[in-house]
Nucleic acid binder design. Sequence first.
DNA 1: GCCCGGGTCACCCTTGTGGGGGATGCGGTT
DNA 2: AACCGCATCCCCCACAAGGGTGACCCGGGC
Lengths: 219, 219
Amino acid sequence: MTIRVAVVDDEELIRVGLRIILDAQPDLEAVGEAADGADVPAMVARTRPDVVLMDVRMPAIDGIQATRQLLATSALPPRVLMITTFDNDDYVYDALRAGASGFLLKRARPAEVAEAVRVVARGESLLFPAAIRRLVETHGSSGGPAGDRLRAARLTEREAEVLRLMSTGLSNAEIAASLFLGVETVRTHVRNVLTKLGARDRTQAVIAAYESGFISPGG
Amino acid sequence: MTIRVAVVDDEELIRVGLRIILDAQPDLEAVGEAADGADVPAMVARTRPDVVLMDVRMPAIDGIQATRQLLATSALPPRVLMITTFDNDDYVYDALRAGASGFLLKRARPAEVAEAVRVVARGESLLFPAAIRRLVETHGSSGGPAGDRLRAARLTEREAEVLRLMSTGLSNAEIAASLFLGVETVRTHVRNVLTKLGARDRTQAVIAAYESGFISPGG
DNA sequence: GCCCGGGTCACCCTTGTGGGGGATGCGGTT
DNA sequence: AACCGCATCCCCCACAAGGGTGACCCGGGC
């Protein structure tokens, strides 16, 4: 029932810190560590984590490569949460393509770390705080991995419907009128959509919808 | 208090479909139909609709001409919402010049149709989601009631820059920080962008940016 | 039986947003 | 000189939006 988590980072300080944070949660359990991407396959095979917190920059094999190997060679691969400083995240797109489920800021608070682990363990994704911004500005998703992420966000039918209406520019009240619902209900759905997409507001959610291919320009 | 709507389209299937959609809404009422622009004046005089959904292409008199006649000859003309497939939008300017209040995609979802009708019935224009396409970059022609709208859609460099940042999901404060401006300045630019695009809020503006090609998914 | 996810709706609270003004300076144009 | 578009910044105000929390009902799985 507990979520098994492994930590991959070349800095021991980070590993220890994350382990403490994780073990402090009743539903999380730190089951393994690795100091380099090269050690990941063996460690994962041994400890069978549900989620791997993976640093990007590491001496021998970096987090992107390690993630790619992991998801390509394993039968039931764990979810991978990339650890990033956000200072230089040109690799965001590469990480998504490699199959990462989301991003975790190194300066995230313990509660955020724990929650992020739970989210990806559920099979959902954590696109926003770090990722979409770069997706928009730099390379393209081109209906590729980002689309999988959004689909993996597992919106319920109602939430997807609300997101579609949000993406046409409707306000909460208008969505409510269109679906014959109360505004409070729409607000609930919108809130769930924002949470699941990691979006801060409806604008970011709509951007995510476009960037992921959930919505296509021109219809 | 119900909004009276008339449908003008040469395809009966479209007319029936729209009528069903409209009558399904408690606040909308389909009051008239016409199969060609030539029949519009008489039909409008008889049924006195608040909004006319007008197809562009019709056998004898097309939607542009019918709209022009309607708004020129009637004392209190109804609002006209052009129905378009968006395949060929060369007539967008002509439609706006003729006095159309907005555009409706033929593949629009029922909820969107209903909402579009409500919007134009309120006297607002609906440049969404079809018409923006060129407005951002291109400048319209001159003259006519819609000429101002088109000219107004020309964004200044600063406004375009702000729109770009809005389209990455940034808040006003974040845009201000990015451009080393005061928040009030950004608010002014945002307000101008919204006005020029006919958008009600930043979400609609971002949608317009995507729909117009001003922003493309994937950068 | 119970639990749980989904959908529905309610309340509180804070803040960002957007609409309405206006003011200033600056660089072109006429 | 007068004008105007543009950019910058200021005020007030109303309200939608978003976060947090809790509630109810339903249907399905344990």
